[in-house]
């Protein structure tokens, strides 16, 4: 259910947006870029989904680092709208192709995670990616395994990123699902503190 809508962040907040489970934010509100509001909303404990035509990897990296749950390309990823919101509400990882490009820059990716993210960014669906990737024994990967690679990369970013409620919740879900182990988190955090490591 849509709790509130409006043409500025403050208007939505005042109209009851504070109680919403998920906030969908357009970066370009009447010519004003609200990129810096993402961290503010994330710090206030909101789950933010950024919905924008500005899908350049640098922009996506910035809003994800600021604490956004997901990024949705307004032109190319409209059909993922519902999935993204549902997963954000469940604090489950969900990676759109535009997010995959940004995630390629996350430190400590394994070769397989990188390969899965690369194809997702290129626009492939999970079934095609699975078809293109094989295990060391020559067996084809399952869609489930490919999704795990992608989601694990997302979890690594959340673990290393801005400490906010949505990120904690996402990491918790990932640990619950066995995507990452709790003891790995401090490694990702130290990488984020020192990217040269």
């Amino acid at each position: 259910m849509i709790v509130a809508e409006g043409s500025s962040v403050d208007a939505v907040m005042d109209a009851g947006g504070r109680d919403a489970d998920v906030i969908v934010l357009d970066l370009d509100l009447h010519g004003e870029f609200v990129t810096d509001r993402v961290s503010e909303l994330a710090d206030a404990g909101h789950r933010v989904i950024v919905y924008s035509v500005h899908s350049e990897p640098l922009v996506v990296q910035r809003v994800l680092a600021a604490g956004a749950c997901a990024f949705l390309d307004k032109r190319a990823e409209r059909e993922l709208f519902v999935d993204v919101i549902v997963n954000a509400r469940r604090d489950a990882p969900f990676v759109t192709p535009s997010m995959a490009g940004a995630l390629l820059e996350v430190p400590r990716l394994s070769a397989r995670e990188r390969e899965a993210l690369l194809h997702l960014f290129q626009g492939m669906d999970y079934a095609s990616i699975a078809r293109r990737m094989t295990t060391p024994d020559g067996e084809q990967l399952s869609v489930h395994t490919v999704r795990q690679y992608v989601d694990r990369a997302r979890a690594k970013l959340a673990a290393a990123g801005r400490p906010c409620r949505s990120a904690f919740a996402l990491v918790a879900t990932c640990i619950e699902q066995g995507l990452i182990r709790a003891d790995e988190i401090k490694d990702y955090r130290s990488d984020a503190a020192d990217p040269s490591a």
Binding site: L109, S110, A111, R114, E115, M133, T134, P136
Partner: peptide, 12 residues
Amino acid sequence: TWTSSWKESADG
């Protein structure tokens, strides 16, 4: 080295 379709070594 992994034998994936266009081979990447395990360290990326």
